[in-house]
């Protein structure tokens, strides 16, 4: 079935089974491999993308359900909030193996859009759907706080934070 999807502000036409989860459309059909498979049942958050700005688990979202909506993946996370999160992650060296971090960053960016200055409890609440087996949680918390500060204090160009 032909689907037209708006991904990272670009229209993409794909010919896939309508029940195919968005995750596999992104990864196998469009080469957007930054979004990861971790569980296939919305348990781990490695596949988190934004659908009209809200975090969703793309492993259980049929691609058809994303038609007409704006999909953002880690590759297209160009918002000032997204860039602040990525810079904070870099600054604090959050990543270990890094496999879950696309999902963590997407979830963190969505949180900061909702709550520009989240508490630890807000962070725990928003991020508890994202598992990190290397266990970078301490730095994820610190990273979100740092990103909140960066958003406020830094001018962000289209290329990223400077």
């Amino acid at each position: 079935m032909q689907l037209q999807l708006l991904i990272n502000q670009q229209q993409k036409n794909v010919d896939v089974e309508p029940d195919m989860p968005l995750l596999w459309v992104l990864r196998d059909h469009l080469g957007l491999t930054g979004t990861k498979y971790g569980c296939g049942m919305a348990q781990c958050g490695a596949c988190t993308v934004h659908l009209d700005g809200s975090p969703v688990r793309s492993c259980v979202l049929p691609a058809q359900a994303a038609v007409g909506k704006s999909i953002t993946t880690i590759e297209g996370l160009n918002s000032s909030t997204g860039k602040a999160v990525q810079k904070a992650w870099d600054d604090l060296n959050v990543v270990q193996c890094g496999f879950c971090q696309s999902g963590q960053i997407m979830a963190a960016a969505a949180l900061l859009e909702q709550k520009p200055n989240p508490t630890d409890a807000d962070i725990d609440n928003a991020m508890s759907g994202n598992i990190c087996r290397c266990a970078t949680y301490v730095r994820i918390r610190a990273g979100i706080h740092r990103a909140a500060t960066l958003r406020v204090n830094t001018t962000i160009s289209a290329e990223g934070l400077v």
């Binding site: 491999t33 930054g34 993946t73 590759e75 870099d90 959050v94 890094g98 696309s102």
Partner: peptide
């Protein structure tokens, strides 16, 4: 303390894992 050489690629979703090889 030196940051990971792969950090920037990872946070931008550009790092390559075996899962991503096509």
């Amino acid at each position: 303390a030196i940051p990971s050489v792969d950090s920037t690629d990872i946070v931008q979703g550009q790092a390559q894992y075996t899962s991503d090889i096509t």
